[in-house]
Amino acid sequence: MYKNRKDLSKLVLLLSFESSSHDTAAPGHLCDSVSSLVSYLTLAVWYKSHTIEHVWPQNPNSNWPNCLDSTLHLNAIGNLSILPSSENSIASNKNWSDKKAIYAILSELSLNNKETMAAEARHNKVITANQAYTLLKQSKLHPHIVALANCDSWDASYVEARGKNLLERV
């Protein structure tokens, strides 16, 4: 869907994220929430610098296993998320474990924990000092990213199951 209809993909993602939180019974999936910290259905979110993140990147580095089919999974709704452009640039083409570390930083509520996680990510060369600053000082919590931070792996069956979960929420 993304390849031919980026606007429709973005709308489906925003609709599925609205009033959601991570599903503790199904790691990586979303469930209904009583209230959401963020409303995704606003013109500001639509027009501002929120971009579509390909979890399995459009140009994956060699550290990504060949467990996904670029024709079937790359632009599938289950492989997509929404991030502000600065955070999306940080995640970029990184491998799954690095992206998961970035998602965990973005998901953390405690500033102390977030700082510790960012320092560890810098030490492990996942992010640079400037990227750590962005993640710590400029980024906001996006509840749907908490779900991604709780995923153990990113493979074809998971992308398909996540896509089904997101589409059922629309």
Rank of each mutant, 00 (worst) to 15 (best):
S97W: 07
H22L: 13
M1R: 09
C67I: 09
H29R: 12
T24Y: 02
L14A: 09
N95E: 15
N113A: 14
L80C: 01
S20M: 05
S89V: 06
N79W: 00
Y2H: 09
E120F: 04
N113K: 08
W46P: 13
S153W: 14
A119N: 06
L72Q: 12
S21A: 13
S35L: 12
A101Q: 03
G163Q: 02
K100P: 00
K114P: 01
S39N: 12
L109D: 09
S70Y: 14
S110H: 12
S85G: 05
N4L: 10
C67P: 14
A101W: 05
S85P: 04
D155G: 07
K125E: 09
H22K: 15
L13A: 06
K137M: 10
H73F: 02
S157R: 11
V34W: 14
N124E: 11
L15A: 09
V38S: 07
A118V: 00
V45A: 08
D32A: 13
L13H: 06
Y133E: 12
L83I: 01
L109P: 14
Q131F: 03
T134C: 06
E108R: 07
T71L: 15
L14V: 11
S36F: 07
A25C: 10
K99W: 01
L30T: 02
L37M: 10
L8I: 07
W46Y: 10
S20G: 09
W96G: 04
N150F: 13
N79C: 04
S97P: 03
